[in-house]
Simulated assay, not measured.
Amino acid sequence: MVVLLDPAAAYADTLYERNDTSYFITHPAHPSIIDASSDLSREDPDWFGGQGREEQDIVCALHQGPDENYERGEALARDIYAPVRRAHELTTEQMILLEPALVEMVLGSCLYAVREAYDHVVEQGVPEQAARDFLFGHFRVELGIVFGFTDFPFSDGAQEIIEETKGDIFASNWKDQVFSEDKLDEIVAEVA
Results as ranks from 00 to 15, higher is better:
Val188Ser: 05
Ile58Tyr: 02
Gly137His: 14
Glu71Gly: 04
Tyr81His: 03
His63Glu: 10
Asp67His: 10
Leu184Thr: 05
Val84Ala: 03
Gln159Tyr: 08
Arg115Gly: 04
Thr14Gly: 06
Val122Ile: 13
Glu17Gly: 13
Glu74Thr: 07
Glu17Asp: 15
Asp79Val: 07
Asp176Met: 03
Gly65Ala: 06
Asp46Gln: 00
Thr150Gln: 12
Ile162Ser: 09
Ser38Ala: 12
Asp119Arg: 15
His27Ser: 12
Asp156Gln: 11
Phe48Leu: 13
Ile96Asp: 03
Leu40Gln: 12
Leu5Glu: 14
Ile145Leu: 05
Val178Met: 09
Leu107Phe: 07
Ala77Ile: 02
Leu97Tyr: 10
Ala75Tyr: 00
Arg53Gln: 08
Leu107Glu: 12
Asp185Tyr: 01
Glu89Tyr: 06
Asp57Tyr: 04
Gly157Lys: 11
Pro66Thr: 08
Asp57Cys: 09
Pro83Tyr: 04
Ala113Phe: 14
Thr165Tyr: 13
Val122Ser: 00
Gly137Glu: 15
Arg72Pro: 04
Glu116Ser: 12
Tyr11Leu: 02
Leu76Ala: 05
Gly137Pro: 11
Lys166Ala: 10
Phe152Ile: 05
Phe48Val: 11
Gln129Ala: 14
Asp156Cys: 04
Glu74Leu: 01
Glu123Met: 09
Gly148Arg: 02
Ile187His: 02
Leu184Asp: 00
Val178Ser: 01
Gly157Val: 11
His63Asp: 10
His27Trp: 07
Asp156Trp: 00
Leu40Asn: 13
Arg140Asn: 14
Val178Lys: 06
Glu190Tyr: 09
Ile187Ser: 05
Ser41Ile: 13
Lys175Gln: 13
Ala77Asn: 00
Ala171Thr: 15
Thr150Phe: 08
Ser172Asp: 15
Gly148Tyr: 08
His30Gly: 04
Val103Thr: 15
Val178Asp: 07
Asp151His: 01
